[in-house]
Amino acid sequence: MALKGKDILSLREMNPEDIELILSTARSLKEILSRPIKKVPTLRGKVVCTLFYEPSTRTRTSFELAAKYMSADTVSIATATSSVKKGETLADTARNLEVMGIDVVVMRHSVSGACHFLAKVLDVPVINAGDGMHEHPTQGLLDIFTILEYKSKIRGLKVAILGDVLHSRVARSDIFGLTKMGAEVSVAGPNTLLPPEIEALGVKAYNRVEDAVEGADVIYVLRLQLERQTKSLFPSKREYHDFFGLDRKRLRYAKEDAIVMHPGPMNRGVEISTDVADSPRSVILDQVVSGVAVRMAALYLILGGRE
């Protein structure tokens, strides 16, 4: 078994069999994380390059640990967004890295579609670690992985995605991945933060958070991307929290055993209240663990089976 394409760019373009393959591989690999010596020799001699044009702690660390646990070498390049346009082009940077012998590029970039572009530039595989407002496929996969650990199925589950869907690559990957696997997905947030024609993706859209949370098995709270708010899309963080944040009161609309998720980093007291974030219903730290396992699986499947 091997993945269909050279790259991992989006969950929209990934078929359900490949999603299943990554998830089942991740399930096997998760065991390594609980070992006293977290290292298998599988990717010895491979070089994983993380190329981050946007700041990130979690995702980059997660990819780097995943690579190290499988004995790959890692190189990490972080470039401030502001210098990109003036400096070397992405194509030139990436071609240089390629001839130095890297085997895969894991890229984060502020422009949607940048990973698609990079995949055209390079012969080596590209893994999208988040591109603009487009997708963050490994986040989508780790979210599905985490839900499966708690609910042991996706089909028929009611998942409510709350908040800044417009700017969220996480929301898009989750919507594509979860609907592909048969979940009933709804989104809710202020209309200024819901992208047009979102319902055509097979989700229900609400302006009242309570309507989406009603009867939900999973509540996914998106990070309010304050850095992307170029226009006046909502009046204040206070008002946002009062009407659209997930607090204990709104959580009551969900099923008794509903789990609460968040991709991090959280704006406590804005999109999620601290008592909910730290409650037993929160599986936010499990998501982080799943992330390493899913990225090990992604690296193994991308790097392991090619001549």
Binding site: S112, D131, E135, R169, R172, P196, E197, A200, L201, T230
Partner: peptide
Amino acid sequence: DGGQMNLGLNSTIAGLRG
């Protein structure tokens, strides 16, 4: 302002400003 493509379902999918 800032738009990259037609606003609609496709800009929603692509994550490009519409």
